[in-house]
Design a binder for these strands. Sequence first.
DNA 1: ATGGAAATGAAAATCATTTTCATTTGTGAT
DNA 2: ATCACAAATGAAAATGATTTTCATTTCCAT
Lengths: 121, 121
Amino acid sequence: MSRSNPRVLSTLERAGGFASAQEVYRLMQREGESIGLTTVYRSLQSLVNDKIVDVLRRDDGEAIYRLCGDAHHHHLVCKNCGDTVEIEGGAIEKWAKVMAEEHGFREVGHTAEIFGLCSKC
Amino acid sequence: MSRSNPRVLSTLERAGGFASAQEVYRLMQREGESIGLTTVYRSLQSLVNDKIVDVLRRDDGEAIYRLCGDAHHHHLVCKNCGDTVEIEGGAIEKWAKVMAEEHGFREVGHTAEIFGLCSKC
DNA sequence: ATGGAAATGAAAATCATTTTCATTTGTGAT
DNA sequence: ATCACAAATGAAAATGATTTTCATTTCCAT
């Protein structure tokens, strides 16, 4: 088994929020780091095993990773111009927790996004 | 644009619960139906557009489809066994509305899902 | 019957992810 | 320093779901 390459973790941190393996890889390339895509995948997997990062799925099926326990935020996206606002999701956190408990679920996470037309569009 | 092949919907119904495109296809084959994989994908997509079926992602990233209940609801999904509970999202609706207003967004919609380990897993 | 639009499906293309495998690197013993 | 061996690395091939292409077939309205 392989252990995580520390540069992968540090890049994921720097990405803030979510990032896919491909994105982490591209980011490292752009920053001149020499690393193979395979190693990025392996490192992320290992971080997931160690419960250092969470993994989710985007709507398109791509896996996205995020530091565990990271205070996370949600997005308000304009469906016309793509403009995005980071918003706070305290209400969601509470809702997710309550719903999960109500149904006996553990180790819960969630995704939530709002989309609409921004004031300019 | 293409419309859904009715046999796809009927097969998905018969499958009860969730089924992936590949599973619907295999099921139809086993039952002697003559249909192409492409048509299965197209039909499922079209059913999703028409909000007749829901689509989720398995842990491995494969898309799974299921007949929609009626009202707008959210999902509590077990990331191990895929078991799913439909939950009510009143809190989310309110949150989305408030956040959108706060930032001057109109015509808002949202997505939200909770995932974790169910009591059996 | 006739023409055009929609539906179909086989095969190729795409794309994320995993596997293979040969090479490199790190480490501990001598 | 040298040898030996395990772990890490990454390029390239394999995998598998999904999408696209495109030629053909089916449907309908005239």
